[in-house]
Amino acid sequence: MLEISGLTKRFGTHAAVNAVSLSVPAGQFVGVIGRSGAGKSTLLRLINRLEEPSGGSIRFGDQEISTLSGRALRAWRARCAMVFQQFNLVGRLDVLNNVLLGRSFVVPTARALLKLWSVDDRAAALSALEQLDIGLLAAQRAETLSGGQQQRVAIARALLQEPDIILADEPIASLDPRNSRVVMDALRQINRELGITVLCNMHDLDVAKAYCDRLVGMAQGRVVFDGLPEALTEDEARELYGLEAADVLDMTPETLQPVAMAAEGRRFAGRRAAAH
């Protein structure tokens, strides 16, 4: 059970995550949705502690996460794997070693630095890759792979951590629709078969509705929706995405958009005519 309460992250005076409270039972597939800049990414990074919280608490079971440091923090990160939008692999390292980095907390540092992974660990890495249908790419440099393949390598790395939670930060935002489905299917399979809790950031509402047990909607750093995917009405969704657009532009959408678009259209039409 992951218990977040009053979690806040400020960059200067701007609160990227503003007093977020959330409780995630083990095994749930949670989709965090909202526009870019809503604080989804920061929320996930706070949970893995790639960002330091400015306030509030994160608890996992009996443990307070927000104050961990040193080896205890490393232990937590190992239990709470992260998948990134840009895959964040070591490009010049081969796929197998990238996956084996998932063992970096449990394997003695000297062995890890020399890449002296045990036979069992190698086997585990290979079978994770095979489960994701990229076993044959094990010896290739990670940077030579396509985006979809790289994201699957990142998921294999996460699996080698034998985590309780996987935090997926926009895992499909850089992928084409077919690869998006492969990656989302893999995450759901991991969630269903291994019982690993998944928190997944997305801005595509349809994908979120198709895969998640529960949706958490964020806007301006706050949770503005929390419930079943079916419970999110079209009006609520529009509010979730529209509210912020209006706020960012500091004008009401009704007055701004038609005028600007009409002016734009005229200008481009004029230029096209002039060009011909």
Partner: peptide, 25 residues
Amino acid sequence: KRPVEGVLSTGAGPLHRIRFGILPG
């Protein structure tokens, strides 16, 4: 910075960070 974050997110220590996150690049 991305490989560094990737390595750190697995629970790696400062030496892993240098060896795998920074040096290969």
